[in-house]
Simulated assay, not measured.
Amino acid sequence: MFIPIGLSISIGLFIDSNNKIKNKGLGRKIGLSLVALDLLIFLGIMQHENLQIEETVFYFAYFINTGLFTRVLVHYAIAKVFGPLIWGRGYCGWGCYTAALLEWLPIKENKTIPKKYTYIRIVVLILSLLIPFIFIKNGYDYVNRHIFSPLSSSESLPFQPYKVDQFIWFLAGNIVYYIIGIMLAIIFKKKRAFCKIWCPVALVMKLQSRISLIKIAPSGNKCIECGNCNEKCPMDIDVRNYIKNGKKILSSECILCGTCVNICPAKAIK
């Protein structure tokens, strides 16, 4: 998966680096969509894997009991736990399959999300961890299969996941996320409303993003304080305040989308 994901991101970067392309940011959207197809079609539909946080809880329990580190855990470790120490929440900007759909919604507004709604993510994160834990504790899922099936006494592993169950979680989880994401985008007039209000993964990456190596930063050109960066930022970051004071963007909400870089008339951001 690393090769197609790398190629997809490279295609996006190449398109956006082309000075003839007037719609800056189009390349990132294309790259993001290609990554989403890699993950959803190959891992989700063909391999019956689920990269949502709920399935990660199942596989973490599997790892604790068997010592087997599966590719779902590899994905989560790289993209959402240790990787953000390098690229912050770059996964949200360049690899999230939920955001890949939301980015193409025909919504021109970019309204600011009131802070009180951002706390909903905490509740969603708790439920995303609690629900699979309850399934694991009880040993059964809602279609009368064992999610972790007890093996015979002659076999060494205490349980193993069913592919059918993984596919059900994959379909259900993604359908729910897409529906909620589209509804929130329409209600709040903001494509990335889901990321600010509902996404539990955002909280998983917040601490690492704060100290990540790669950040949006001042270019050295003087900020003219036009406010375009703040107006267009999909994550409601006060970009202007960071740049005019000569500081890197330290906000854990930054997804490295580059919107502020592309929109700045003074080229004060890089």
Rank of each mutant, 00 (worst) to 15 (best):
A61R: 02
Y119S: 13
A100R: 00
F58K: 01
R89Q: 14
E54N: 12
A77Y: 00
K108Q: 07
Y62I: 02
K108M: 04
Y91R: 03
Y62T: 00
I120N: 02
I86H: 08
K80R: 12
R121Q: 13
K116S: 13
A100F: 09
L105Q: 00
Y97V: 00
G88E: 03
I86Q: 05
F60R: 01
G95S: 09
G83W: 14
L129S: 05
W87Q: 06
C96Y: 10
K137C: 00
R89G: 02
T70K: 12
V72N: 15
I126F: 12
I64V: 13
C92D: 08
L127E: 09
I131F: 14
T118Y: 00
A100C: 10
I64Q: 10
I64F: 08
Y97H: 14
G95V: 01
R89F: 01
L130P: 01
W104N: 02
N138Q: 12
G88I: 08
I126V: 15
V57D: 03
R121W: 03
P114A: 10
C92A: 11
T66Y: 07
Y62Q: 06
I134Q: 11
N138W: 06
S128R: 02
G93E: 02
I107N: 07
K80P: 00
G139R: 03
V72Q: 14
E54Y: 06
G67F: 05
V81R: 03
Y62A: 08
I86F: 15
L130M: 09
W104L: 02
Y91D: 07
E109F: 08
L101G: 10
R89L: 01
V72C: 01
P114D: 05
G139P: 00
R121I: 03
Y140A: 07
C92Y: 03
T66I: 02
K108L: 08
G139V: 03
I78P: 06
F82Y: 11
Y62V: 03
N65G: 08
V72E: 15
T118S: 11
N110C: 09
K116C: 09
Y91C: 05
A79V: 11
G139I: 04
P114Q: 06
I136H: 01
K111N: 15
K111E: 15
V74D: 05
L102R: 11
L129N: 08
V74L: 14
L68P: 00
Y59L: 07
E54P: 01
R121M: 00
I120F: 14
G93L: 04
P132M: 04
P84M: 10
I113N: 04
R71S: 14
I134N: 11
G67N: 07
E103F: 04
Y140T: 13
G95C: 13
L129M: 11
P84N: 07
R89P: 07
V81D: 09
A79C: 06
V74E: 13
V81H: 09
H75D: 13
A61L: 06
I53D: 00
P84Q: 08
K108H: 13
I64E: 02
E103P: 02
T56R: 05
I126G: 10
L101A: 09
I134C: 05
P132S: 13
F69P: 07
R89E: 04
I131R: 03
T118P: 07
N65F: 06
Y119E: 04
G83A: 11
T98W: 12
G93Y: 10
I134L: 14
Y76M: 08
I131W: 12
F69W: 15
W104T: 04
G95W: 02
C96P: 06
L127P: 06
N110I: 05
